[in-house]
Design a protein around this nucleic acid. Structure first.
Lengths: 192, 192
DNA sequence: TGAATAGTACGTACTAGTTAGTCCTAATTA
DNA sequence: TAATTAGGACTAACTAGTACGTACTATTCA
C-alpha cells in the first residue's frame, strides 16, 4: 500500500468516527506512520484530503453497496430493496450503531459551512435516491409493490427515513429504529 | 437579561449553527460581551454549559412546539400532525434550510463520544416519539387515519423520516424533501 | 535525475481553563 | 447609627497545550 493510500484509509476511519473538524492532520500522520512533509506532498491541505476521502468513499459505496443491491438485476425489485436494507442493517449492527452514516455525518457537520462538501453530498444523495426510485418503478411494474406509491416521492421518503433511522439508532445505541422501520416500510410497499 | 441568560442565548445560537466542538468559549464570551472568568463563575466547564443549553432547548421545544401542536386537544389528530409539520417546515424555510435540526445536529456530532449528551437526546427523542404515537392512536380511533398502521412502529418512522428529511433538505438547501415528504406521509396515513 | 520520503524546527492563531483579586450590596453586630 | 462581615458578580492576565501549515535540509530509490 502506498503512503497516499495509507493516508486515505486512516483519515477515512478517523473522520467517520470523530468528524472532520475533530480529526487533526498531526493525528493522521501519527497513525499512518508518515512524516508531515510527506502528507503535504500528497495533499495540498486538510480540506483537499477531506474531499479526496469523500470522493473515494462515495465511489466505493455506489459500486459496492448501492449497485450490488438496488441495481442487481439477478434479484426482483423487492429482493433488491430487502438486500439493500439487510446490508445497511448488518453494517450498523457490526459497529454497534455507534458511528452513524458516514455521509449523513459529514452532511450534518459540513453542509452549512463548506460548499464543496455540501455539493458532493447533495449530488451523491440524489444519485442514491434515483436508484431507489428506479427500483420502486420496476417493482410497481412487476406488481411486487402497490401502484399507489409515487416512486419519486417515496424514494425521497425512503432515503430520508434511512438517514434519520441511522441517526436515531446511533442516539439510542439500538438497531431497532433502523431494523424495524425498514421492515415496516417494505411491508407497506407490498400492501395492496 | 442576566449574564447567565446571555451566555445561554449566545451559546445556543452558535452551537446550533456551528456545532458544539466548533463553538469556543472565547467566542461565546466575546459575543456575549462578558469576561472569561464570569463565564466560569456561571458554568464549571464548557460541557456543563452545553448540557444546560440542551436541557433548556429541549424544555422549550417540548412546551412550545410539541405540546402546542401534537398535544393540542382543540384540534383533531390529523390537524395536530399537520400543524406540527407546518411549524417545522416554517422554521426551516425561515432559516433557508441551512442549519438542520438543533437536536439532530447534536445527536450526530456527540452521540458517539459523550454519554451525557447522548442520554439526554435519546430520552428526548423517545418522549417526542411517544407523543406522535399518541396522536396516531387518537387519529385511528377517530377514523381520521387508516387502522392498518401500527402507531408505535409508524411513530418511529415519522420521527426518523423527519430527522432525515431535515438533514437532506439542509444538504440540498431546498425545503422540498421535508415539505413534500411530510405531505406524502399524511396522505398515506389518511388512505383507507 | 527527479519523485518520494523523513525529520525537525517554526510561526501564528486558537483552545479550555486558572489565578488572584476587585466591586458592590445586604445582612449582622457593637 | 456606624463598623464589620459575607458573599454574589465580576475582571485582566495568565498557563499550557493544540491546530494547520511552512521552511529547510537531507536522504532513499527507481
Amino acid at each position: 500500500m502506498t503512503n497516499k493510500e495509507k493516508i486515505l484509509r486512516v483519515a477515512y476511519k478517523m473522520i467517520y468516527r470523530n468528524g472532520y473538524e475533530q480529526t487533526s492532520v498531526d493525528e493522521i500522520i501519527s497513525k499512518a506512520k508518515i512524516s508531515k512533509s510527506n502528507f503535504y506532498y500528497h495533499f495540498k491541505s486538510k480540506e483537499s484530503l477531506g474531499i479526496a476521502v469523500l470522493d473515494l468513499r462515495i465511489e466505493r459505496y455506489v459500486n459496492e453497496v448501492i449497485n450490488e443491491t438496488l441495481m442487481n438485476n439477478k434479484l426482483t425489485p423487492l429482493r433488491r430493496l430487502e438486500s439493500f436494507y439487510n446490508k445497511v442493517v448488518k453494517f450498523h449492527k457490526e459497529n454497534e450503531c455507534k458511528y452513524g452514516c458516514p455521509f449523513g455525518n459529514l452532511a450534518s457537520e459540513l453542509s452549512s459551512k463548506n460548499h464543496k462538501f455540501r455539493k458532493r453530498l447533495a449530488a451523491f444523495f440524489e444519485q442514491w435516491r434515483e436508484k431507489i426510485e428506479l427500483c420502486l418503478k420496476h417493482g410497481i411494474e412487476k406488481k411486487e409493490f402497490s401502484d399507489k406509491f409515487n416512486p419519486k416521492l417515496f424514494s425521497e421518503i425512503i432515503l430520508a427515513h434511512l438517514e434519520g433511522a441511522i441517526l436515531i439508532s446511533k442516539t439510542y445505541k439500538q438497531i431497532n429504529p433502523l431494523e424495524k422501520g425498514s421492515k415496516e416500510i417494505i411491508k407497506l410497499l407490498k400492501a395492496a
